[in-house]
Design a protein around this nucleic acid. Sequence first.
RNA 1: CGGAACGUGGCGCAGUCUGGUAGCGCACUUGACUGGGGGUCAAGGGGUCGGAGGUUCAAAUCCUCUCGUUCCGACCA
Length: 599
Amino acid sequence: MGRFFFLQLNNITFRYSYSIMRYSQMLIRTAKEIPAEAEVISHQLLLRAGFIRKLTSGLYTYLPLGLAAIRKVEAIVREEMNRAGAQELLMPMVQPADLWQESGRWVKYGPELLRFQDRHNREYCLGPTHEEVITDIARRELHSYRQLPVNLYQIQTKFRDEIRPRFGLMRGREFIMKDAYSFDVSDEAAGQSYQTMRDAYTRIFQRCGLEFRAVEADSGSIGGSFSHEFMVLADTGEDTLVICQECEYAANVEKAKVVLLAEPASETTDDSTGEVQDCIKVETPGMKKVDRVAEFLKVTPQQVIKTMIYLADEEPVAVLVRGDREVQSVKLKNLLDVAEVELAEDDTVWKLTKLPVGYIGPVNIPIKMVADQEVMTMINAVTGANEKGHHLTGVTPGRDFTPVAVGDLRQITKEDRCPVCQGALELTEGIEVGHIFKLGTNYSEAMHAVYQDQEGKEQAMVMGCYGIGISRVVAAAIEQNHDENGIIFPLPLAPVQVIVLNLSIKNEETTATAEKLYQDLQAAGIEVLLDDRDERPGSKFKDADLIGIPYRVTVGKTWEKEGKVELRTRRDGTTTLLDYEQAASTITTSIQDELNALK
RNA sequence: CGGAACGUGGCGCAGUCUGGUAGCGCACUUGACUGGGGGUCAAGGGGUCGGAGGUUCAAAUCCUCUCGUUCCGACCA
């Protein structure tokens, strides 16, 4: 009864087997009602379709169908990683503290790192990522330039003690991740490894049948100089992307460069003559918001300089942006070179400046100040006066105040232009499913992972690291592909490719036909589920739709009357009548064609 | 971490204000009918109301503590 399919790749054959493929015997429990705890669509559907069950906050059991989808993603990832020359290994999930102390992250990583002690009071953590362990392997096993480059990967369960786990598989505390680490002799060689992974990732997500973009990204806490994120485009994405309509440029808004436009002076000055005016203090009682101040003083928000107080690693910093702009906190973090930036609370602002928020300004402010590049082009601007109920007009940067640092600090908008080609930009939402980093020598230097070059000299290995959220890919696929009836799996990720509905199990001929079709499809190497339950047709249709099987074959009335079975595609609902004799081969061909088209 | 809400059979909920020892829908079991988009009827099984303590003749219901879950915030001066 069991069946197998084989994947031939790089001389390695993986066999994946399903024990049972009869609906009546499988653990598939579907629900009509939406579980109260599920907010986003993928979470709702994964629960309703019987793919996952929650054990506790952020921790899920993958039921047979859910696991089958996970295995599909894993198989594609393995195949493409191996094709790209990476080697699979498997590291422990539990990691000793001393490795993390060596890299410095035992202190730096923060509360997301779940730490605990064993019976001897030795410190450990659950691995949220594996740079330390892999670097330890590298320094023990790799000693010569002749052994490099090497790319090692694993598919492992990670644990991150998220502040707020949510959205089911999208942000769990425990999740399945493919992580790969490359080791090279030079920066240039590491760039080559990076490019190889970038290509592999593109192939992986193409083969998954997902609509995605690779975008320039902030490298975040993992560190490193350069990185790309792979984003599945979906309305519910947690990230915002900016995509150029003209060229290939695409970036996370955390990273997207704002280019200064040469705007006519009249737009940023309250005087079309462009003459620099004197700085004057004016009363603005109760005017805290930019819009109110601008309206009151009969200027536009573009002529106001907004002063925001942030805490950068606990140190207060005043941040200046134009009145209609927003601070991009990741850019701020990078400019200040700190680990954390946080907007100061109102009472913190009061303690620091003895001012209510709304009247703070850059002129003679006693705290460290940085400004967005755009601010420095303004003249005769309006700012807070650092006095309750007052603002200043005629403020000009450079003359009236000088920031300690100036840079690109604001969030990009769709009115901005592409930093590469000046083309129009579009903003869209995305779900991060993959992230690749050039790490450089951060870890290898900290942990002394070195090799000997041709001259016998010790050199730090140049590293890269590359992650894919396997379980998140499944959630993202559903976010991107569903309708009111349920999941619509892209064929490569579907837990099974075909579902055969036997609509009258009491009719021996119908049943025999459905059975034969089931067996023929299996024999042809197709993954097929036979719905042999004693249920009414309506329930079978609803369940087939809900669990998202791409192809559905119905053996029922049409078979009894006309000797034909019905083939229906889940995505567009098109139905074709097939003679029984052709059915298995037609379906097989169709599936193979569709899969090949993605390769 | 801050704010809010919720915890009642497997799931979704009512009952809580106005204490009197538990109810509905789905799911499940049995039977009959039915059989192309989650059917109908009938008969059943299953909960002591998150936990602990308290008030009371009496607590799902009131009080205290606690645990858990979910949502919101963690952004615009």
